[in-house]
């Protein structure tokens, strides 16, 4: 019996697609905003769309920040998707008050969320190549340069380049996936990336089933 996956419902994303995709790859997913359910799951998927500050506010309001950080600290396989990846970082350039301080994220990964430079069409929407920076079980069976589906205006910049799992070229290379032990994150939408996306989610299921697959 595969172990359960908590899909974190922060209230800002349509979770149907990711839920259906996890079910499609035979992962018993449960959509939840209950800290106890998240704490009891074998793995966590943390999706998100919309604005950084708004989403972070909802997470705090629901009292979910501490349980998410606990799951990460305890070594539970954790996958942030799109804004969910960005929320793992210290802060973001995406703010409602242009003169104010940068909004703070969960701070599980050192680094910043940056806006694409002027001159590039944003949002970056469509299929783009993802090139793994190193071998990792999340990308098992996926060729370097496989296309995944993106839709975002900001990208993550980890302070430690060693945390970069994959890069994508949009004007310049940006980090499209990260891996810090059990903490994984992808900027693209695996649930909208056809067979390649389903393969990645299935790989995440394999990691949940056997966390020793993860590099130390």
């Amino acid at each position: 019996m595969p172990k359960s996956v908590a899909v974190v419902d922060s209230g800002c994303a349509n979770l149907n697609s990711i839920y259906k995709a996890l079910v499609k790859v035979s992962l018993p997913a449960v959509i939840t905003d209950d800290a106890a359910v998240i704490a009891g799951a074998a793995g966590v998927v943390f999706p998100g769309v919309g604005a950084f500050e708004h989403a972070m506010g909802l997470i705090r309001q629901k009292g979910l920040a501490s349980v998410l950080l606990e799951c990460i600290a305890k070594g539970k396989p954790f996958l942030g998707i799109c804004l969910g990846l960005q929320l793992l970082f210290l802060s973001s350039e995406e703010r409602s008050n242009p003169g104010g301080p940068l909004p703070q994220g969960l701070g599980a990964v050192a680094g910043q969320v940056r806006r694409f430079p002027a001159g590039l069409p944003v949002p970056h929407v469509g299929w783009n190549r993802v090139s793994p920076a190193r071998s990792h079980p999340l990308f098992a069976g996926l060729n370097g340069g496989t296309y995944f589906y993106f839709t975002h205006s900001y990208y993550v910049q980890p302070s430690d380049p060693g945390h970069r799992l994959a890069v994508t070229d949009y004007g310049a290379p940006f980090t499209s996936a990260i891996g810090v032990r059990n903490l994984l994150g992808v900027q693209f939408h695996p649930e909208k990336s056809g067979p390649a996306g389903l393969r990645l989610l299935s790989n995440f299921g394999n990691i949940i089933a056997d966390p020793t697959l993860l590099p130390a």
């Binding site: 149907n16 697609s17 259906k20 995709a21 589906y149 909208k192 990336s193 056809g194 996306g197 389903l198």
Partner: peptide, 8 residues
């Protein structure tokens, strides 16, 4: 459709 296909 969204339950069975995984592209936009």
């Amino acid at each position: 459709t969204a339950a069975s296909i995984f592209i936009p």
